[in-house]
Design a protein around this nucleic acid. Structure first.
Length: 482
RNA sequence: UCCCCCUUAGCUCAGUUGGUUAGAGCGGCUGACUGUUAAUCAGUAGGUCCUUGGUUCGAGCCCAAGAGGGGGAGCCA
């Protein structure tokens, strides 16, 4: 029987169970082939390779030449204690089959270090590298941890729509969803495209947030969350923005802003701890990778803590909670403000904080994650609950070192009259929000929620500095390859 | 959308003041070696110097426009 038809054992299972002396089949992709004898084989089940040892003198020369980096092979042999130093076990090959050749002259991945920029151009192949396979394994564990955390807390996962007919959220520019002819659409009397003839009979877009829809479930199921893709057509060209990203948005009935800040902190710590416990090998690798990367930087730019030290620090220390007003005071009296080092100087209450200010608070002043809350109402969204001071709303942001805003949330305005005032002030067409206002008309309740940018969380956990490297196929302005 | 930087071999990069035949390391290929760990050693091939236009006796190098990539800002998650 050909080996391809035989059941294979995953490498991770061979490394962690005692099957010494047994005959096993391993299938995977060749990383390196050294000395005409040693195949480093990887099947993605773990960062580690299985060393398959072949007797080159007894192997066909034409077959040996096909064992190239990137080729897919199946090997059968005895699992033995390794005679070499780099691994505990190895496979003494009795049979080998090439399942898929990889022409060494054309295969772009070489047994050497590649730049992240180059790998981004071959995103369909970069998952075959240690770095990206580690990132995607961590990403999976984090997805699982999100569902585990909320399930254990009695939250229900709600699938909110991806195509939405509601454009009132105001979180950003939207992508239109249409089946109308782009070149020659049907026109209405005023000469504009006639969306009543469109697939849904109205204008539709890709969602920028599931919040408004998940609030409907909150006011029935109490504690709910949505975890799905979101789309922003903003022309953002930074290392922390994507046009398509994944967001986790819990919404809790009877939570006020303080309950929400507590939950956000507990959630983030849980995710970090879960990764530390369940992605040990991958995180150790990413830790070494980050250290190597830092060596190329000038001393001042290097971080004080290693990746794993940072993760442990976040998991084990309380976040700093301060109000917007307190933050303004700290910033106003800060050295960079007095010495006019900030590009935007802080002088009066009410200004939105720039990322230089957020970075100062998180990275210089407190040296830990910071939760800012009670922002001026004028710089925040219409649905946030107004505080008794009539100046601020019960909004909060969680700020992380190196990443900036990782969570944004608020207590929602549950009072119909107050909500209507804000909708009028901002000139939002009421008919678009009628269903949302029903939630305040019928059985309204205090409730709160937040949004966590999943890729920013993955950035923090993996230490990757560019968000395009933590999602398999990044979507950014002028780039939708694959 | 704005500001700055980059684009030379498959990859990472050197390339002096504008001057003859554009280099290195890694990778590939050929061979040697055969318990290697991104193996090692020897040899070898490989170039639209991003594109277009311009300046010049002469452009990888200077100028202009465009394309692609990166860093930062804004917007945010």
């Amino acid at each position: 029987m050909a080996i391809i038809q035989e059941k294979r054992t995953k490498i991770i299972d061979l490394l962690h169970t005692d099957q010494l002396g047994e005959s096993v089949v391993v299938k995977g992709w060749v990383r390196t082939f050294r000395n005409n004898q040693f195949i480093a084989l990887n099947d993605g089940s773990t960062l580690e390779n299985m060393q398959a040892v072949i007797d080159f003198s007894a192997t066909d020369e034409q077959l040996l030449k096909r064992i190239n980096t990137g080729a897919c092979i199946a090997v059968k042999g005895e699992l033995v204690e390794s005679k070499g130093k780099g691994q505990s076990v190895e496979l003494v090959v009795s049979e080998i089959e090439i399942l898929g050749d990889a022409d060494a002259e054309k295969y772009p991945l070489q047994p050497k270090r590649h730049s992240l920029e180059f790998l981004r151009e071959i995103a369909h192949l970069r998952v075959r590298t240690n770095t990206f396979s580690a990132i995607y394994r961590v990403r999976h564990i984090m997805i699982f941890a999100v569902h585990k955390f909320f399930t254990e807390k009695g939250f229900y996962n709600i699938h909110t729509p991806i195509i939405t007919g509601s454009d009132a959220e105001g979180a950003g520019e939207m992508f239109r969803v249409t089946t109308l002819d782009a070149v020659n659409p049907p026109k209405n009397e005023s000469g504009d495209p006639d969306f009543s003839e469109d697939f849904f009979g109205k204008e539709t877009n890709l969602t920028v947030s599931g919040q408004l829809e998940v609030e409907t479930a909150c006011l029935a199921l109490s504690d709910v969350y949505t975890f799905g893709p979101t789309f922003r057509a903003e022309n953002s060209n930074t290392s922390r923005h994507l046009a398509e990203f994944w967001m986790i948005e819990p919404e809790m009935a009877f939570y006020d802003i303080n309950d929400t800040m507590e939950l956000a902190e507990e959630f983030v710590k849980y995710l970090v701890s879960y990764a530390l416990q369940h992605c040990t090998k991958d995180l150790e690798f990413l830790n070494r990778r980050a250290l190597d990367e830092e060596k190329n930087k000038p001393q001042i730019e290097r971080s004080e803590l290693s990746l794993i030290e940072r993760l442990k620090f976040v998991a084990n220390n309380d976040f700093e909670k301060i109000t917007y007003t307190e933050a303004i005071e700290i910033l106003r009296n800060s050295k960079p403000n007095k010495k006019k080092k900030f590009q935007y100087l802080i002088d009066e209450w009410g200004a939105d904080l720039q990322s230089e200010h957020e970075r100062f608070l998180v990275e210089k002043h407190f040296k830990k994650p910071v939760i800012l809350y009670n922002y001026p109402k004028d710089i925040k969204a219409f649905y946030m609950r107004q505080n008794d001071d009539n100046k601020t709303v019960a909004a909060m942001d969680v700020l992380f070192p190196g990443i900036g805003e990782i969570i944004g949330g608020s207590q929602r305005e549950e009072r119909y009259d107050e909500l209507m005032v804000r909708i009028d002030e901002l000139g939002i067409p009421q008919e678009d929000l009628d269903w949302y206002l029903d939630l305040r008309r019928f059985g309204t309740a205090p409730h709160s929620g937040f949004g966590l940018g999943f890729e920013r969380m993955i950035q923090f956990v993996t230490g990757m500095t560019n968000i395009r490297d933590v999602i398999p196929f990044p979507r950014t302005p002028d780039n939708a390859e694959f």
